[in-house]
Amino acid sequence: MNIVVCIKQVPDTNEVKLDPKTGTLIREGVPSIINPDDKSGLEAALKLKDQLGAHVTVLSMGPPQADAALREALAMGADEAILLSDRAFGGADTWATSSTLAAALRKIKYDLIITGRQAIDGDTAQVGPQIAEHLGLPQVSYVEDLSVEGASIIVKRIFEDGYHKIKVKLPCLITALKEMSIPRYMTVGLVYDAYREKEVKIWTLRDIEDTVDKSNIGLKGSPTKVKASFTKGAKTAGKVHNVDAREAAKIIVEKLLEKYIIS
């Protein structure tokens, strides 16, 4: 069984601090991590490797420094790592990103593709389903549990109000929730291998040019454009009331009505 896990390197938002004066994020010195949903999906793939001897490939698109995320995946036990890195891929929205990843996936053997549900720096949850569409694969997103049964997988698909148990024939794509698994630690031996024995293959546009339409990649191939970005204005403090409890309750209720929180 061949599994490809798509991972994204993201800034560790848990480590992000706020500038107390400006109220903006301090980005310098923020460590990069493997996106948590993706890492959970990677762990699920590695479990299938332990159980069934699956071959696990990790695939990422990003700048050269995303190498570190792929090395970490190798050190956790992934067999192969590919980094899609080219200036031509830069500035991509989710359509262009998924087109680029799908182009690479057309060149890799897979029975199952796992992506994270969403990345903590973008929160769109779009790239997984879009890859599935480009490749014409069945998809199940929001997966919390995964097992293999013959030529199919059985997954637990989470909704706000419950879950479905779903059987899907391979090949297919699933998007993993953070809750799916607790990622293992890297082992010393594998860390050594990841940096000394194994390689992270770098694929540029040239490596995928026969499987992608160039008008669908990078900034130019992105249907959506950022028109403007702005920091949210620093919040000014609201009114503070020093009144008895009964009066306070009335003021709060008024606010809740005004904000349509209650009706």
């Binding site: 403090a237 609201g238 503070v240 009331h241 020093n242 009144v243 003021i251 606010k255």
Partner: peptide
Amino acid sequence: NPDAPIFEVADLGIVGDVTKVIPALIEEL
């Protein structure tokens, strides 16, 4: 505490004891 920093980010602040204000709010609702 009227000087609590939480009031700086609040849209609405109430200086008062939680154990008195919350029951009053439940009653008002």
